[in-house]
Design a protein around this nucleic acid. Structure first.
Length: 558
RNA sequence: UGGGAUGUAGCCAAGGGGUAAGGCACGGGACUUUGACUCCCGCACUCGCAGGUUCGAAUCCUGCCGUCCCAGCCA
């Protein structure tokens, strides 16, 4: 991959590393901190890439840390999936796999320490009362009547919370900061709440769990993180992050820097919405090829390299942005163009009969696998009198500029012969059931020894040698660029009804027989396709179109 | 005058006093046994707006406008 360009985070880091800087003489250390409550998507890929490549750029390390401080919404099911997806992307955290829950005791001890320093107190207010007393965006909040309990009383109450003497909601540990702050996060935020759910790692060891704002900075500090890179919505939390880090007796004081999260046109990125699409059966699971999840992209045929290149090239800034999906597709085409072998497959077959080719005869042609990569060698493709060609490669009354098969026109059958269309046969309903042509024996291999120009070249598959396959074509999941932006319509109403098209009767050249995932090919003139990693069988092939080829034809292509 | 951010092309995004990089998309052309790839060319007289400072402003100053985030015992 090319050298990533410098962004504002790199500049901040370089300032920190410079002599006299905040982290002068230190090695950069970052972390990717997913909450194990959902599958990773392309937006996470951006964060993963930023964290891992930034550390790498400065010779540092990046940890993988599961931020699991809420037993009611997290599950091991996601832990394995997340690790697998990050590895698939190509990143390695070596032996630095951590869990926020591993620091439970340490964080608890810090909480007691905060109580002793008068920085935290136990409150009896209900969640509703707390909300009311928090004030509004424009009005200050009011102090809780329990705000000035003694250290001894607070310590006793907090220990009883830990011991299970209270029920969820009865008590909460709060930071004592400033109920009048313009920043709502500083109005005595909750630091610990009671939860009597079983945690996926610590079981029933604890019935109190720290809040993100208290736990995260401590986790970062404990791991020696220098730069805690997160998304923009945490900007308002930075004062709290710093408050925790500055009052805790820890060596390290990590620095939080925020960047804009990724949005992509034609899809949604929130965990809640993606989950809803899955649970409502609006898509075929988390790995539906139309999903922006890493599993979905993988099944669709996206390569790790294409995703990493994409993340590198979109840049990093603090501007709310929505990247055009066409750019992601471009990165995939670029990667696959260089690596995928070419092959011929007909998606919407119509019979082509070569009238002057002997019935029963078969000959084979040599076909290059990848013109971009001659070392990939050649394969053999059989030719016979009856072939399959793409229905749209024939037109009895061609639109302007059309140079494929139409009566009287010459076209080249890729790798085989130049043929001249002589007409077609229609059924009772007027549908073209057969196209007819004659071939020129002198053009064997597709050359024109007389130097004549043949503008069109089409792909084909010998009918008697064809391998059947199902091919699935995908389009944008949503029919509008930004489904989240619509205020009057629910995003589910904006789903693109044509996002999936199944073509059950496709004809492939015989070299595709037995293909297995994760094989990827360029179907000549059509696009890049991969063997579906879930439902395809060697004798019942199913291909997914990863991305189409760009189509330069400006005419009325049906 | 609640707090915090942010406005450079249709979409990303460099540039931080010396006269607007790059990519995607789009349009045109060359090449072509893939209407692909590749290669050329075009695509912001102007950087949200208005003033000001300066020989010179996207960059500095002032004011205004737009957009996003925050009132979970979620992360």
């Amino acid at each position: 991959m090319e050298e990533s360009t410098k962004n504002f985070i790199h500049e901040a880091i370089e300032g920190d590393l410079a002599p006299g800087g905040r982290f002068a003489g230190r090695a950069v250390h970052t972390r990717f901190p997913p909450e194990p409550n959902g599958y990773l998507h392309i937006g996470h890929a951006k964060a993963i890439c930023i964290n891992f490549t930034t550390a790498e750029k400065y010779g540092g390390l990046c940890n993988l840390r599961f931020d699991d401080t809420n037993p009611t919404r997290e599950d091991v099911e996601y832990v394995d999936a997340i690790e697998e997806d990050i590895r698939w992307l190509g990143f390695d955290w070596s032996d630095r796999l951590f869990f926020g829950s591993d620091y439970a005791q340490r964080i608890y001890d810090t909480a007691e320490d905060f109580i002793r320093k008068g920085l935290a107190y136990v409150d009896d207010l209900s969640a509703d009362e707390m909300r009311t007393m928090r004030g509004t965006l424009t009005e200050p909040g009011t102090n809780s009547p329990h705000r000035d309990r003694s250290v001894e009383e607070n310590l006793g109450l907090f220990r009883r919370m830990k011991a299970g003497d209270f029920e969820p909601g009865e008590k909460v540990l709060r930071a004592r900061i400033d109920m009048a702050s313009g920043n709502l996060n500083l109005r005595d935020p909750a630091m610990y709440r009671i939860k009597k759910d079983t945690h996926h790692r610590t079981g029933d060891d604890w019935c109190i769990y720290p809040m993100y704002d208290f736990a995260h900075p401590l986790q970062d500090a404990v791991e020696g993180i220098t730069h805690s890179l997160c998304s923009l919505e945490y900007e308002d939390h930075r004062p709290l992050y710093d408050w925790v880090v500055n009052h805790a007796d820890l060596e390290d004081r990590p620095r939080q820097i925020e960047f804009a999260r990724l949005n992509l046109t034609g899809t949604v990125m929130s965990k809640r919405k993606l989950l809803e699409l899955v649970t409502r059966g609006l898509v075929d699971g988390w790995d539906d090829p139309r999903m922006p999840t890493l599993r979905g992209l993988r099944r669709r045929g996206y390569t790790p390299a294409s995703i990493r290149t994409f993340c590198d090239r979109i840049g990093v800034s603090k501007v709310y942005s929505t990247v055009d999906s066409a750019f992601l597709e471009h990165c995939l085409r670029e990667d696959l163009n260089a690596s995928a072998n070419r092959v011929m497959a007909v998606l919407r077959p119509v019979k082509l009969v070569v009238e002057n080719y002997p019935d029963g005869a078969v000959e084979t042609f040599e076909a290059e696998n990848n013109p971009e990569r001659p070392e990939n060698g050649v394969r053999t493709v059989p030719f016979s009198r009856e072939l399959w060609i793409e229905a749209e490669d024939f037109s009895e009354e061609p639109p302007k500029g059309y140079f494929r098969m139409f009566p009287g026109n010459e076209v080249r059958l890729k790798h085989a012969y130049v043929v001249r269309c002589t007409g077609c046969v229609r059924d009772g309903a007027g549908r073209v059931v057969e196209v007819r042509c004659t071939y020129d024996p002198a053009t064997k291999g597709g050359d024109t020894p007389d130097g004549r120009k043949v503008k069109g070249t089409i792909h084909w598959v010998s009918a008697k040698h064809a391998v059947d396959a199902e091919v699935r074509l995908y389009d944008s999941l949503f029919s509008v660029p930004d489904p989240d932006a619509s205020e009057d319509r629910d995003y589910k109403e904006l789903l693109n009804p044509d996002s999936l098209e199944v073509l059950p009767d496709c004809k492939c050249e015989p070299s595709l027989a037995g293909a297995e995932a994760p094989a990827a090919y360029q179907f000549l003139r059509l696009g890049y396709f991969c063997v579906d990693n879930r439902v395809s069988r060697p004798d019942r092939l199913v291909f997914n179109r990863s991305v189409s080829l760009k189509d330069g034809f400006k005419g009325a292509r049906s």
